[in-house]
Amino acid sequence: MSQPAFTFPRPLGQLIEHLPAWPPSFAFTRILNLALRQVIRRRDLQALYGKRISIHVTDAGLHLHFTVLPTGFSAAAGNVEADLAISASAYDFYLLAMRREDPDTLFFNRRLVVEGDTELGLVAKNTLDAIEHPMLELERIFPRHLLARMKARLWV
């Protein structure tokens, strides 16, 4: 198994792990709503309505919990078992979001773990794949300098 090219520094990961999950989930759903509002037709996500989804950024120790509602993505508390749980490192999530890596490939070599309702995972994957541009056009969401800093960190 090849090593991911970037992992979060451990102390930072441990620090994030001890923060309550709710504020990051809230920020994350804000970003998702901003990024995806214009590119996903709402009905394509219908199968996900009301489902609890959790994203685990393994090396950052970050757990994000949210649900999909007809009105958009909404943060949720993390104390209930998710219908769909996706785990990967920050770098691999970044590669996926930027369409640099194929999810099945990451899955085959165990860098991406999907647990729970597989059909929900497939709906999510196929819906994101069908979007014309990379899932997160970061340029549109983040101010330039922040983006440059993030890139610099990811490409050490």
């Binding site: 729970g116 597989t118 497939l122």
Partner: peptide, 10 residues
């Protein structure tokens, strides 16, 4: 293997 019948579990 319809996805609704598939379960992955750690």
């Amino acid at each position: 293997s319809p996805a609704k019948a598939v379960r992955w579990q750690q």
